[in-house]
Design a protein around this nucleic acid. Structure first.
Lengths: 121, 121
DNA sequence: CGGGATCCCCTTTGATACTG
DNA sequence: CAGTATCAAAGGGGATCCCG
């Protein structure tokens, strides 16, 4: 359905890059991962470097509860579960893109101000 | 310079309304409070219902450090300090407005999904 | 494979009291 | 007025181990 997720797709998005945050720590990244189509649990773990199963489960459950994505479990062996954005979840991409655009244009200024502050103190 | 801040200006913005968050818990609201011009410390405390001086100071210091606002202390008695948005701080209004627009259009759907979930469980 | 159960830590946030 | 100092609480996030 979709290309494999790039393990480094968030390389340019350190936590400092997120004065703008959507939902909890992982919501925005999960949304990005699902942008191109449904994904499996293990598939999501790859770009979300170091996320533990517990935390990923919690984030996915919260998003499911809020109607941002659907969870579909297939009764197979081995088990297979797919997560897919709903229209509501997809609507988050608009403010997310506004946030990313802000980072592209202004984050450098913010970091420069922060460095200057540390240098002065 | 500017009209007094409405103590209830954030009445329609419960925490649940913020799947989109800018900076720490108070950054976005402080930015809104400064939108119309410089404000004093005590002036800011009014709409930020219940914020303690400590937390307000911490938030303001962090924003100053990041170049989002300036702090000007006038050597008078009684003391007077004014906080004012920089251009960088003002640039946050764009993604903030995108987030507010999302809330206006979709928050109702999110809350409905959440309620349905609770009802089902 | 896709989790659940436990335990724990640390940061964020707040309450309270005091001060130049 | 505009903070600072200290303490306490809370919850988000993570480590580790286990399971159907």
């Amino acid at each position: 359905m979709a290309e494999p997720l790039d393990p480094d797709m968030f390389a340019g998005c350190p936590p400092v890059a997120a004065p703008i945050r959507i939902g909890d720590k992982w919501t925005a990244k999960i949304t990005r991962c699902l942008e191109a189509g449904p994904r499996r649990f293990t598939e999501l773990q790859v770009p979300l470097l170091g996320i533990t199963p517990k935390v990923l489960t919690e984030s996915l459950r919260a998003m499911e509860r809020d109607g941002l994505l659907t969870r579909t479990a297939y009764d197979e062996i081995p088990p297979r579960v797919e997560y897919e954005l709903t229209d509501l979840g997809r609507s988050l991409l608009t403010p997310m893109n506004a946030g990313c655009e802000w980072s592209r244009r202004h984050l450098r200024d913010l970091l420069r101000a922060r460095d200057a502050w540390h240098a002065a103190s």
